[in-house]
Design a protein around this nucleic acid. Sequence first.
DNA 1: TTGCCATGTTAGCGTCGCTAACTTGCATAA
DNA 2: TTATGCAAGTTAGCGACGCTAACATGGCAA
Lengths: 213, 213
Amino acid sequence: MTDMQQESDATKQTQQARRGYHHGNLREALLEAAEALIAERGPDSFTMADACRHAGVSTAAPYRHFEDRNALMEAVGMRAFDGLAAATGGAKAPFEEGSVEAILAGGKAYLRFALDNPERFRLMFGRNPDLKSRPIVELAGRACFQNLLQSVSAYLATRGHAGADPMPLALRLWSLVHGVSSLAIDGPMDIIAPGNDPEAIIEESGRAILAAV
Amino acid sequence: MTDMQQESDATKQTQQARRGYHHGNLREALLEAAEALIAERGPDSFTMADACRHAGVSTAAPYRHFEDRNALMEAVGMRAFDGLAAATGGAKAPFEEGSVEAILAGGKAYLRFALDNPERFRLMFGRNPDLKSRPIVELAGRACFQNLLQSVSAYLATRGHAGADPMPLALRLWSLVHGVSSLAIDGPMDIIAPGNDPEAIIEESGRAILAAV
DNA sequence: TTGCCATGTTAGCGTCGCTAACTTGCATAA
DNA sequence: TTATGCAAGTTAGCGACGCTAACATGGCAA
C-alpha cells in the first residue's frame, strides 16, 4: 500500500509514456524528472534514485542513456543555459539595439532568471568537481554571452567607439549582474540588507559602468 | 599492508596529537582535516569518513564533537569568514580610510582570497540545502561587511555626503567584487575571455561606481 | 517468422551519514 | 590511594546512494 501509493505519486507525471517493459521515452522522462528535482531541492541533493522513482524505472535503467549522474546533470545544465539565453535575448528585444535600456533589460532578465530558478542557476555556475562539466559552460554559456557582446558592440558604436573590442566592458557588466544575482539567491544580500532591491543595483551601477567608457 | 600504509599516510598529520584510546584533541584535528580536504576537493566531495581517516579515528567519533557533517562544515565556514575579514581588513589598512584606494584594495583582497581559496569561497557562499547553515553568514559575514560599510561611510563623507546611508553604495561595490570573484573561480570567465585580468574589472568598474554618487 | 540488440530488470558491491550499545581511561572526590 | 562517573572513544549495523554485471524482454529488420 505504501509502495503502491508512492509509485502512483512518483510516476504519474510520466506514467502515460510508460508502455510496458520498455519505457519508450526514458531519456526524456529522466531529463524532466531531473529538471524538476533539481529545481526543487538543488543540484547537490539530487539523486539518480529519485529520478528513477519519478520515471517509474529501476535504478539501473538511467545508465543506458547517461554515462553517470554527472552526465544527466550536464544535460539539464545545457537546457538551463538555453533558458537563460532566451530570457536575456527576449528582454532586450523591445529596445533599440545598443541602447542603455537594452543592455540593462538583459541584465535584469539575468537577475530575474536567477531569482526564478535559483537551483538551476547554481547548477549552471557552481563548478562541478568533475572536469567533465566544463563543456556545459563552453558551449551553452558562450551563446548566452554573445547576446551581451553584441549589445555592447552596438553601444560602443553609438558612443563613437565603433570597432572597439567590446569584451572589457561586457565583462564588467557581466560581473556586476552575476554578482547581484549570486548574492541575491544565495542569501547574504537579504541578510545584510533586508528589503533591498537587487534590480536597482543593476540599474544604477550598470549606468555608471556604461557611462565610464 | 595496504591498510597499514593507508593509515600511516592518512594519520601522520595529526599523529602526534593521538595519545591512546582517546585522541585528546579530536575536535581541532577534525577541523583541520576538514579544512584541508575541503580546500583540496571542494565542499561537495568532502566526506566525514575522509576526515576520520585523516584524524585516525573511527567514523563514529566525530559525532561526539559535531552534530553532523553540516555542523562541521559550518565551523570550517566560520573560520573561512574570519580569514576573509582579515584579508580585506588588512588590505585597506595602508591606505587612508575612506579613500578610493582603500576601498579598491579591499575589493582586490576579496578577489585574491577567492582565487587563493576557491573551495573555501564556495563553502562560504554556496547555499547549503539545510537552513542550519544560515547562521554562518549571519554572524561571520556581517562582520566582513562592516569593513566595507565603514570605508564607504568615510568615502561618502569626503564627497560631501556625511551621514548618508552607506548601504546602497556598499551593496553595489560588493555585488561587483563578488561577481568578479565568482566568475573567476567558477571558470566561465576564463572560458569566455582567457587571459583576462579580473583585478582590472574591479579597478575600473569600482572607480566608475564610486564616482557616480 | 525469426532472431538481434536496444533497453529494460534484478542482484549486489563498496561507500557514505548516522545511531545504538559497549568500552576505556582521565579527573575528581572519598 | 583508591573508587567511580562521565567524556570520549570503539564496533556493528541500518538504509540510501552510485554504479556494474548478468540476465530478460520485446520491437524491428531481414
